[in-house]
């Protein structure tokens, strides 16, 4: 693998993570518990799709085959998508969506803090911009997880159930492969090994405030980064890509 291919993969994965989580959050539009939360979830989805657009555009430039961000979003099948599995899981209830947002945004706080120091100027610039937005997402998710966890017996039980269900999908965020280590040597990629401790400490602290038990560290699900997904991704793509599949090259 050349460094160019590694960089393409790196930007693509970051783009896919944002795009797929954005698609999931968008599903809350008109379905949230109340109007303000409807706006909040779709605002976060908007930040994520902006980030996906920037990352996929860059991936296309690095690849050098003339593919645009739209080509990459709408013309790849599920086995060519490399997002973490946690992004594609169905929304579940509001507690489940907020727990996922907490796990992901806490990770992103640490990740983009580091990526903004990347020797790759484009990744660094997108990271610096993203970090400002992620801080806000994190604050929102944190408040909700604490409020629900520290709320009624029902809301506490739902948060606990979500934490238990999502826990095994968190390990994948810290995986690194050959492409990552290649870029790490050049100061382009983030060493996710170094993020684990900070992530676990912050999550533990927040879950404690929410009266939620931390699951025992156990089996971690994997696959998304290699293109092996849950059955859910195909359904997201079939909806997202319908128009370009049915009417190739359609523009408006």
């Amino acid at each position: 693998m050349t460094q160019q291919q590694a960089l393409y993969n790196y930007a693509l994965r970051l783009g896919d993570n944002s795009l797929i989580l954005s698609a999931r959050l968008s599903e809350w539009c008109s379905n949230a518990p109340f109007l303000e939360e409807d706006l909040a979830l779709t605002n976060m989805a908007l930040d994520l799709i902006g980030r996906a657009q920037a990352m996929l555009k860059y991936a296309g430039e690095v690849e050098g085959k003339g593919r645009t961000e739209d080509d990459l979003a709408y013309r790849r099948g599920e086995r060519d998508y490399y997002n973490h599995l946690i992004m594609e899981l169905p929304n579940g209830d509001f507690a489940y969506t907020m727990v996922r947002q907490l796990f992901v945004s806490t990770y992103e706080l640490f990740f983009f803090e580091e990526l903004q120091k990347s020797t790759d100027a484009t990744l660094a610039a997108i990271a610096a911009k993203t970090l400002k937005e992620v801080k806000y997402h994190h604050l929102h998710a944190k408040d909700w997880v604490i409020r629900l966890g520290d709320g009624t017996a029902e809301s506490n039980a739902r948060v606990q159930k979500a934490v238990n269900a999502l826990w095994m999908y968190t390990g994948e965020m810290f995986e690194m492969d050959h492409a990552d280590t290649m870029l790490l040597k050049e100061g382009i990629a983030v060493n996710t090994d170094n993020l684990k401790l900070g992530w676990i400490q912050m999550v533990t602290q927040i879950l404690a405030l929410a009266n939620i038990d931390l699951p025992a560290d156990g089996y971690m699900q994997t696959g998304g980064r290699k293109g092996i997904h849950t059955e859910y991704l195909g359904h997201i793509l079939s909806e997202m890509q319908y128009l370009q599949r049915a009417y190739p090259d359609a523009t408006w």
């Binding site: 303000e36 939360e37 706006l39 909040a40 605002n43 976060m44 908007l46 806000y136 604050l139 929102h140």
Partner: peptide, 13 residues
């Protein structure tokens, strides 16, 4: 504060 997110990404309610 009613909501951290408003009618556009840059505003709160």
């Amino acid at each position: 504060l009613l909501s951290r997110f408003g009618s556009t990404a840059c505003k709160a309610l």
